[in-house]
Amino acid sequence: MIITIAQQEIRTLFLSPLAWIILAVIQVLLGYMFLAQLDNFFLLQPQLSQLDNVPGVTDIVIAPLFSLAAIILLMIMPLITMRSIAEEKRNKTLTLLVSSPISMTEIVLGKFLGLFFFVFILVSLLMLMPLSLFIGTPLDIGKLLSIFISMLLLLSSFAAIGLYLSSLTDNQTIAAVSTFGALIMLWIIDWVSEVLPRNQEVISYLSLLQHHQTMLEGIFNSADVAYYLIFITVFLVLTIRQLDRGRLL
């Protein structure tokens, strides 16, 4: 049943041109950045070759690329998640799901799985760029895998919070703007850490991108993975509760 809803979610996503355009735009932007980073690397290469223990192409080209990708996607994910539940509310099609023999949990998990599939396609497409370097040079596969997983977890967290905010309203624009606001807040929340040294650790721990950064460096810390998983779970549970509440109002 969860799969059925996920399939429908993906179908509606790809029936509108929005998903295709988003995939294309991201690919073009990041492709350009990828080339720019590569050129940089070629400029640096003669100097690097004279040093010992230098960072490799994975560190210089790929990690910064995905650090930037995270910020671009932070602005784009709200556009993907905004319609998820808000549109069903607006078109009154949520009734179809609610009166079918499925639980709210299944509905929410199905929706999330659909979004996760989109995220998976997106990240896989982006990963093709660094993988193309295999033609000319060896890469650090462990780091690539860490980057891949980190991107998946990060974008799934974006999707989870977007799904929740989409369940709060029947207006897509409101869902998108509030998701956008929440994500930016979670990005910049650690910028005050120098002003508030006492709470520095807590605040920087809350920042979504902080965890992404460490995983990009190839440090696969289970605490970071747990952070993402807890983040996703919390927002999915909130979404389920929100849909259940709709019956009481």
Binding site: N91, K92, T93, L94, T95, S99, S100, P101
Partner: peptide
């Protein structure tokens, strides 16, 4: 719910 077929006031249709 398995026993019920329901047509709400606004038919829940996906226009696309």
């Amino acid at each position: 719910k398995q026993q019920i077929g329901y047509l709400p006031e606004h038919p829940p249709l996906y226009c696309e």
